[in-house]
């Protein structure tokens, strides 16, 4: 049994945010972190590893420095890493990225008992599309927004965190699950893990290795092949400060109704 955890290196949005002329993020000039939801996905995988002793592989697509992130995940407890990296893949949108990652996972082999974990969404694009698209391309069942996971053999019982409540779903392996940060508290690296992490294997899958994968359509990958074009990037204007009403419930309702009527909302 093997668990693949798909992770993304993202700009640290708590620092400076820089944008290129074409509207894409200027990633080179920004500090990077491991996408927070992906850390929850890794922790979910490591907890299953703690119980079952299965293999955990961290998979990412990105430029060569993304290897550093894979080493950190190995220091946390992953067994190995896979770096999907090539100039031809650069600038891919979610449609292109999910094709390439699905192609790479298919190349590595997804077995009957295997699970693919992804974070819900990345803090840079906030699309939440790549995980579900990978599942579709691999023709696997998917469960999104996992906030609790129980594993019993080949069956996973997943509690999905929705805006207005929870939904519990059972799914059988092989499957893909996207995780939210409420799922768990990711562990830290250990000194022992760090001392070993550069000795464990990190495979690089480049364009040559993946170009013949049936799931990858060479016309729809990279910046040119991506169907998404960024029209404009901007910082949305700050919302005005809210207004707190005071008084008894009846007084507050009267005040609120009066204000809404004055704005012709009601």
């Amino acid at each position: 049994m093997r668990i693949y955890v798909c992770v993304k290196q993202v700009p640290d949005t708590s620092g400076k945010v820089a944008v290129n002329e074409n509207g894409t993020l200027d990633r080179a000039s920004m500090a990077t972190i491991i996408n927070p939801d992906d850390m929850s996905a890794m922790e979910a995988a490591l907890r299953i590893k703690d119980e079952t002793g299965c293999q955990v592989t961290a998979v990412t697509m990105g430029p060569p420095p993304a290897e550093g992130m894979l080493r950190e995940l190995i220091a946390m407890g992953a067994d190995d890493g896979v770096l999907i990296s090539g100039r031809e893949f650069g600038g891919s949108d979610t449609f292109a990225t999910s094709q390439i990652v699905a192609g790479a996972l298919s190349h590595l082999g997804v077995g009957e008992e295997d699970i693919i974990f992804c974070g819900r969404q990345a803090i840079d694009g906030d699309t939440a599309q790549v995980g579900p698209q990978i599942a579709e391309k691999l023709n696997l069942p998917q469960v999104t927004y996992a906030a609790a996971i129980e594993k019993d053999g080949k069956v996973l019982k997943v509690r999905r965190l929705l805006e207005d409540g929870y939904m519990t779903v059972e799914v059988q392996t092989p499957c893909l699950i996207t995780c939210v940060k409420e799922l768990n508290e990711p562990r830290y690296m250990t000194v022992k893990g760090i001392l070993e992490c550069y000795k464990k294997p990190v495979a690089v899958l480049d364009f040559e290795a993946l170009k013949d994968e049936p799931l990858i359509d060479l016309d729809t990958i990279g910046l040119k092949g991506s169907p998404t074009n960024i029209f404009r990037s901007f910082t949305p204007p700050q919302k005005g400060a809210g207004q707190m009403l005071a008084g008894s419930p009846q007084e507050m309702v009267n005040e609120l109704a009066g204000q809404l009527a004055a704005k012709h909302v009601i």
């Binding site: 080493r71 220091a75 830290y188 690296m189 760090i194 992490c197």
Partner: peptide
């Protein structure tokens, strides 16, 4: 070394 750099990052993050 890269290992010691990573240790520093981890110690700092933990603290």
């Amino acid at each position: 070394s890269r290992e010691h750099e990573l240790m520093r990052k981890n110690f700092r993050n933990f603290a």
